[in-house]
Nucleic acid binder design. Sequence first.
DNA 1: ATAGACTATGTGCAACAAGCATATAGTTGT
DNA 2: ACAACTATATGCTTGTTGCACATAGTCTAT
Lengths: 122, 122
Amino acid sequence: MIDEMGPLCCGKPHQAQRLTEVSLLIFMTQGISHGYAMLEKLKQLNLGLEDLNTSTLYRTLRKMEANGHIRSEWESGGPGPKRRVYQITEQGTAYLKQWIDVLTVRRARIDSIIEAYNRLLS
Amino acid sequence: MIDEMGPLCCGKPHQAQRLTEVSLLIFMTQGISHGYAMLEKLKQLNLGLEDLNTSTLYRTLRKMEANGHIRSEWESGGPGPKRRVYQITEQGTAYLKQWIDVLTVRRARIDSIIEAYNRLLS
DNA sequence: ATAGACTATGTGCAACAAGCATATAGTTGT
DNA sequence: ACAACTATATGCTTGTTGCACATAGTCTAT
């Protein structure tokens, strides 16, 4: 029962914490990149995206662009298949800042739950 | 933009972190109680369940029982409408312990994201 | 040349938690 | 009788995520 708990009834882990989105925003502040490269590099960082699947990655990227948080262009030339290269927007930078505040609240909430557990049991 | 960010596109906040379930398990280690009472008391604790709605509460309770983590009985007698009183099971106690481990991992993950943000920006 | 591996992006489907609205019904106070 | 309160529950919808699959260009070894 490693990493994440299964759902209430059956099947596979379900997270829906949107950490992929935040991690990608942080990643993109480091410069322009494309999906496949992110997939590879994110496996090395310890942001919990070691086993991020391609569906989630590409779908999240497309939605982020639809919301104006990132911008993309098809890379002209270069080796291999065409790449859609992404870049964070000003709007995206502001959005990321808000997300960090949300995560701070979320962490505090987890803290108080763990604390309550240790107070009452353990 | 207080508490939680809205979804990527539109509509209302979406969390799906299952903190309700864990909080309820912790709550139930303190003794037998029924749904409505939990709703009232959880508003006072600072576990982030201040505005937990009834649908989520009762549905979660029923699912938790279906999974054997809690057990219920209809309370005989007493004032007001009948109450379904809940009690945590042994299985539920073990499950809660596992959940705390999950939350510890989750917190560490949030930590490393916030840390990465501060390292690269801020 | 061609088969297979690798690079690269994407869609269809299903699972599932959570919110809003609504349903139901007993009890208490005026 | 009527409203307010206590108490539990379901229907519908939204939105994230995972798994499987689709598509297509490029590179390498035989």
